[in-house]
């Protein structure tokens, strides 16, 4: 199994005033291709800092981080931007779609920052990605005309469009009701089944049952790292939920 993420003794310190805050105090783990990992931890556990590092938005104070074989630690801002553009797909809690913009334009966005993709190719891939998240009939709906679940699907399509080695989801179901959460989770499981590597950061312990591996952070340390060979099916859970009355 090819390693997508390799963390070796990652430390990240922040200087706040005269004090130094140790957000991460030596984190090491490896995530291989095709894993669906939940990273959990309470607020203040270093989870957001780890997410920023994994997403190449930040660089560690010490330690080595290899993303798909590339060492991120010494990279400059622009190189990291390019790395994010090519290798990472982000899914945020609040969707972060461009307002008053159609689904297809939102999905095309990462490819606009990649000059090797032609306009035609861009459209084709955007449609393909929207197809993969089940929104092929909503291509030209504007972001403000869609429900939260649909918006998050567009955001996932946007994360898929550059064919990343890693999908990084930050509380991706945090803004959704239970039913929609499980719909999105089902989508993630489908993507996982198709071989995508997914890192799902959450504070909700219930969700760990639906991933293949759980990493728990506490006070900047990894306190638990367990594989979950019997992954629960989000689809089954979804079907067992009571139907919404208005549907």
């Amino acid at each position: 199994m090819k390693a997508i993420i390799e963390l070796k003794d990652i430390k990240r310190d922040f200087v706040v005033g005269s004090e130094t805050v140790h957000a991460l105090r030596g984190v090491s783990f490896t995530i291989g291709s095709g894993e669906f990992v939940t990273i959990m931890g309470k607020s203040g556990s270093g989870k957001s800092t780890l997410l920023n590092l994994l997403g190449c938005l930040d660089t560690p104070t010490s330690g080595e981080y290899l993303l798909d074989g590339c060492s991120v630690r010494q990279m400059g801002k622009n190189d990291r931007a390019e790395l994010r553009n090519h290798k990472i797909g982000f899914v945020f809690q609040s969707y972060n779609l461009l307002p008053k913009t159609t689904a297809i334009e939102n999905v095309e966005l990462p490819l606009l920052y990649n000059s090797s993709v032609s306009a035609k190719e861009r459209e084709r891939r955007a449609i393909e990605a929207l197809d993969a998240v089940g929104l092929h009939d909503r291509l030209y709906h504007k972001s403000n005309q869609m429900s939260g679940g649909q918006q998050q699907r567009v955001a996932i399509a946007r994360a898929l469009v550059n064919d990343p080695v890693l999908i990084l989801a930050d509380e991706a179901t945090g803004n959704l009701d239970t039913r929609t959460s499980f719909e999105i989770l089902t989508l993630f499981q489908e993507l996982h089944a198709r071989g995508r590597t997914i890192v799902f950061v959450t504070h909700n312990p219930e969700l760990s049952a639906y991933s293949s591996r759980t990493i728990v952070l506490k006070d900047g340390h990894v306190v638990q790292d367990t594989a979950n060979p019997r992954m629960a099916s989000a689809r089954e859970t979804l079907e067992s939920l009571p139907q919404n009355e208005d549907e």
Partner: peptide, 12 residues
């Protein structure tokens, strides 16, 4: 929006 653009690969 700027934050989003940067995180999906827009350079400064």
């Amino acid at each position: 929006e700027i934050g989003l653009r940067m995180s999906i690969g827009a350079k400064g």
